[in-house]
Simulated scan of single mutants.
Amino acid sequence: MERYRNELDFALLVKQLLALAFVPQQDIIDLFEHLLENPAYRDIDVICDYMEDNFVGRLRRARGPPRFAIQLWSQFSRLIYNLPHSNNAIEGWYNAFNNVVSFVHLTTNKLARKLQQEQHSTQLPRHQLELGTTTGKKKKTYICINEALHTMVTDYNNRDPIIYLGDIARFFKH
């Protein structure tokens, strides 16, 4: 962890592996293999093995299935179509709702009342969405990051893939 924080070149190697999530699904395995041709990746072989087992699939005679299918974690098409690439909104709703209904002795009637209140509180934003108006504002920082990522992924086919991975990797903070 210390090396990751203190050595920018080392951190970039790790971040380039993470940046594979922003590559078209059909290119991920080839780019992963291309990255591993760089001798510098021998320094992080434990991380590469982890990526291979969990996200790319272990290479034996043929590449086996990974623990997590590529289509589950790939973000490329989500960015192309301006879809959310996290579930933060869902987690936020769940935490807020859980705080509202976290009574010690929650009765069915209390839960039903809370569900009705929740339904009423979501009707206005739902109608706003149906009309095409926005219901909430994102922080300017996240808007800028999303716009920059969208610009990069839409230009993917015109870029050198390794330079592209490096540019995406620079968006990740320590």
Rank of each mutant, 00 (worst) to 15 (best):
T141M: 03
D155G: 01
Y81Q: 05
H174E: 07
E33A: 03
T141D: 12
N38T: 09
T122E: 10
A96L: 08
K137D: 08
K114E: 14
R67H: 08
I90N: 12
M51Y: 15
D45E: 15
S86G: 11
R170V: 05
H174Y: 11
L31N: 05
E130Q: 12
G132K: 12
N157P: 03
A62H: 10
A169S: 11
A112F: 02
K139H: 14
K110P: 00
D53R: 07
R60L: 05
I162F: 09
F103Q: 12
G166H: 09
Y156W: 12
V46Y: 07
I80T: 03
S86F: 04
L149S: 06
L36Q: 07
I163K: 15
T108Q: 07
G92L: 07
A40W: 01
D160R: 07
V14G: 00
F10M: 07
Y142A: 01
D43Q: 13
G64Y: 01
E147P: 00
Q117V: 06
D43T: 03
A62I: 13
I90M: 13
D53A: 10
R58N: 10
D27S: 11
N99S: 08
L59W: 04
H127I: 06
Q71R: 03
E118Y: 04
H150E: 03
E118A: 13
P39K: 05
E2M: 06
A89L: 12
S86C: 11
L165S: 14
H120Y: 10
R61Y: 13
T134H: 13
A69D: 15
R78T: 02
Q119K: 14
D155A: 14
L115D: 01
Q119A: 07
N82M: 02
I80N: 03
V153F: 04
A112Q: 12
A148G: 03
R63S: 09
W73F: 10
L83S: 09
V56I: 15
T133I: 11
A11K: 15
D53E: 14
D9H: 04
D9R: 04
E91F: 10
I145Y: 00
F103D: 04
L131N: 14
R67Q: 06
L72K: 03
D27A: 04
K114C: 12
L129M: 15
C144Y: 02
D27C: 05
Q119F: 12
I44N: 01
F68C: 00
A148F: 06
R78P: 01
R170G: 02
F68P: 00
R126Q: 11
D53I: 07
F32N: 00
D167G: 06
H174V: 13
F172T: 11
I143Q: 00
E91N: 10
L106A: 05
P66Y: 03
L12W: 01
D45N: 09
